[in-house]
């Protein structure tokens, strides 16, 4: 926390971030459902690229937000997934998506562990 703040604004900031954190935890179930839909799509022949683009967009959002609201591991796993998809999208076709599935499953495990906590 910034040392330039007085106690009252610091408390207000902590309370504000705590509320956003709660909403983030509540959003995890929907986020996981969306990832599961995309994981199914990823298994369909010819749909890999479209599914990867969708997974990347959602992982990108998680990467940006999770670390700030106190879930650095979710953020780190989402970043790995995002970076890996960037790599394979820039590479040859057909896309090799097996590792995408593994990374996504690891991310989902982490997300679901916090859903239980909630």
């Amino acid at each position: 926390m910034s040392s330039m703040m007085s106690v009252a604004p610091a408390t207000k900031l902590e309370s504000g971030i705590a509320k956003i954190r709660e909403r983030f935890i509540l959003s995890l179930e929907d986020r996981a459902d969306e990832f599961y839909d995309l994981l199914e799509q990823l298994a369909e022949p010819g749909e890999e690229e479209f599914a990867c683009t969708g997974i990347r967009a959602k992982a990108h959002k998680l990467h940006g937000l999770a670390g700030t609201v106190g879930f650095p591991r979710i953020g780190a796993l989402a970043a790995q997934l995002e970076n890996h998809i960037d790599l394979i999208i820039a590479g040859p076709r057909p896309l090799e998506v097996e590792f995408v599935k593994e990374l996504l499953n690891a991310l989902l495990d982490e997300v679901e562990s916090h859903q239980v906590d909630a």
Binding site: L13, G16, I17, I20, R23, F24, S27, G64, L65, V69
Partner: peptide, 8 residues
């Protein structure tokens, strides 16, 4: 949520 975080 990012916008709200920035506002906070």
């Amino acid at each position: 949520l990012i916008r709200e975080l920035l506002v906070e």
